[in-house]
């Protein structure tokens, strides 16, 4: 068997074992948080909000909250694991071995996607206690969940590569990711906003991820699905190349 393939499998096995070993940190918290969102936004506040595009507010929330959990899980999985490896210096186990950069990137991204999907499925199952979500286009749902998890895993890896301390790990998540998530159309349709704010919202890449995913559920969304998918593919390719370049040049990990 190809040695790079074995190294990839080894890294994935190691990372999956880490996710399972600390499942109370990796799998449980998003379930609790998203359940609270369903209760507070869906039940309490949602009961005061009318249907959106003919869909109950609780059902409207489901794709957004699933996607929110996927994004957070994929991102935090990779950034915390990679930075942890840097901090404890066990990243050197990979650097001294004949592992290619793409194997390291692929290993981390794969486990980021896996955790994102597992958490997404769990949150979706929780949503079934509150509403009866239907999925119109399962293919679109799967494509958007994988691509979104890939984009945020790759972004998390860049953060992990550059981070010098735990503050820098948390900074991007707290000051950039969280605002983008909340302004990404998870809780509302941008068509309800004034035109100016609709245009501002369109600068937020998360809007396209959430809406593309929502299209998979309901067959409609606020933006073009093809453009959203194209943007995700473009971001995945660009971030992949950036990560490969960073690792090849040893930025943030060598010297």
């Amino acid at each position: 068997m190809n040695s790079q393939w074995i190294a990839f499998q080894t890294l994935v096995r190691k990372e999956v074992a880490r996710i399972l070993r600390i499942w109370t940190q990796t799998l449980l918290p998003p379930l609790v948080t998203q359940t609270l969102y369903f209760i507070i936004f869906g039940k309490f506040i949602g009961s005061q909000v009318g249907p959106i595009h003919g869909i109950s507010y609780m059902s409207f929330l489901v794709p957004g909250l699933v996607m929110m959990a996927v994004i957070n899980s994929a991102y935090s999985n990779v950034v915390s694991s990679f930075f942890g490896a840097k901090f404890q210096r066990n990243i050197e186990e990979m650097l001294v071995a004949p592992m290619h950069e793409w194997v390291i990137v692929a290993g981390y991204i794969c486990t980021g996607i896996m955790r994102g999907i597992v958490v997404g499925i769990l949150v979706f199952l929780v949503s079934c206690f509150f509403t009866h979500p239907a999925i119109d286009h399962i293919g679109i749902v799967i494509m958007f969940i994988i691509l979104t998890a890939a984009v945020f895993s790759l972004a998390g890896l860049i953060n992990g590569i550059f981070a010098k301390n735990f503050d820098e790990v948390a900074m991007f998540q707290n000051f950039i990711l969280v605002p983008l998530i909340y302004l990404g159309g998870i809780f509302y349709s941008i068509l309800k906003l004034p035109v100016f704010w609709q245009n501002v919202s369109k600068l937020n890449p998360l809007l396209y991820m959430v809406n593309g995913f929502r299209f998979g559920f309901f067959g409609f969304c606020d933006v073009s699905v093809i453009f959203s998918a194209g943007l995700l593919i473009f971001l995945t390719l660009v971030l992949w190349q950036v990560n490969i370049w960073l690792l090849k040049n040893g930025i943030g990990i060598k010297n």
Binding site: M1, N2, S3, Q4, I6, A7, Q9, T10, L11, R13, K14, A17, E93, M94, A97, P98, M99
Partner: peptide, 15 residues
């Protein structure tokens, strides 16, 4: 043993 076997895997040695 996981630490040692994982290192072997990084060197391309099957499980």
């Amino acid at each position: 043993q996981d630490i040692v076997a994982t290192q072997a895997g990084f060197y391309g040695i099957d499980r």
